[in-house]
């Protein structure tokens, strides 16, 4: 029994490049990204620095307007909804950021910070909001007394617990984690991952879990989407994707990850991808990965591969896996 909670269709976003100068080229941060999210599911999103993960998160949460494409939450249009409709839909999807401390208002106590979404949404009175905040504090493993303290008095892991409590107070269906554990130490990271997984079970949440660390993403996700230079190049069930990646980039990514077992992998076994990531300011023609790809075809340098369904639940944007019909079409 699946219920599609979130539909993302054809999202694209360009920025004007940072900095000044006469030749400011647009940066194509996100290009034509589509995916869906089912109830209770975790979709992991991996990709290297600057590939557009955070921009995609902002687009999905409607914090920045897309150039094209749209987001639908449970059948309701989110992207171009009216102000009031948008405000109500925001209750259904919340976000947790990487830098937990600076995602909390330093001048509000922890309790006020957690209750803040209720206040901004005009839900409940002060006492009810405090009550709700206290309940969540305990739920994320802190104490009720901590509500009176300020964010800077807490460690990074504790701040992330607070940020998670705040994200949950509106009882959302979907939580987006943007590198939420990347800044944490191994032992603290495991604590937060465990909390995140426990909360999902207890509350039936759906997650979009963004990280550049495929190990972490694999640990929490049902499905994984791999991004390269603004596009999703492969998406599929986590186990299958890790066991047998379809896209050459996903494969290169997987082979570059050192495994914490000296009997299984030493430095000589690490796969070395060709070249370095192309710049989003100056993407190559055709497939963005073709210059680094060891299996490129002639067509890869000229055409952008569309996303092809390869097997149930698995898709990739690579000509190697295009159906004969699709590749013939592309060749014309």
């Amino acid at each position: 029994m699946t219920e599609t909670l979130l539909t993302v269709a054809g999202l694209s976003k360009s920025f004007r490049a940072r900095g000044t100068g006469l030749f400011r080229r647009p940066v194509r941060a996100v290009s034509d990204v589509s995916f869906t999210l089912q109830r209770g599911e975790t979709l992991g999103l991996v990709g290297e620095s600057g590939c557009g993960k955070s921009t995609l998160a902002r687009l999905v949460l409607n914090l920045i307007p897309p150039d094209s494409g749209h987001v639908t939450i449970g059948g309701d249009a989110f992207t171009r909804a009216g102000r009031e409709a948008q405000r109500r839909l925001r209750r259904r999807m919340q976000i947790v950021f990487q830098d937990a401390l600076s995602s909390l208002n330093p001048r509000m106590t922890v309790g006020v910070n957690i209750a803040e979404p209720l206040r901004l949404q005009g839900i409940g009175n002060a006492a009810e909001r405090r009550e709700a905040a206290h309940g969540l504090l305990e739920r994320v493993g802190l104490r009720v007394q901590d509500a009176e303290r300020y964010p800077h008095e807490f460690s990074g892991g504790q701040c992330q617990r607070i940020a998670i409590a705040r994200a949950l107070i509106l009882k959302p269906d979907i939580v987006v984690f943007d590198e939420a554990v990347s800044a944490l130490d191994v032992s603290i990271r495991a604590q937060i991952l465990r909390l995140v997984l426990d909360l999902q079970q207890q509350l039936g949440l759906s997650y979009i879990f963004i990280s550049h660390d495929l190990g972490v993403v694999k640990r929490v996700s049902d499905r994984i989407a791999v991004m390269y230079l603004g596009r999703i190049v492969e998406i599929g069930p986590a186990d299958e994707l890790v066991r047998g990646p379809l896209h050459p980039y996903a494969e290169a990514l997987l082979r570059a990850i050192p495994i914490a077992d000296p009997r299984r992998m030493r430095v000589r076994d690490l796969g070395l991808a060709e070249g370095e990531a192309a710049s989003p300011m100056n993407p190559p023609d055709g497939c963005a990965f073709h210059q680094r790809c060891t299996r490129q075809l002639a067509i890869c340098a000229s055409d952008i591969p569309a996303v092809h369904h390869v097997s149930p639940g698995r898709s990739t944007a690579c000509f190697l896996h295009a159906s004969p019909a699709a590749s013939r079409q592309a060749a014309d």
Binding site: L63, R87, R90, F97, S102, S103, L120, A163
Partner: peptide, 17 residues
Amino acid sequence: TMPYIEAARAAGGSPLA
């Protein structure tokens, strides 16, 4: 530019609030 502003926007805060 602080993330807490973004969090407030994601929670549905109006520009004035």
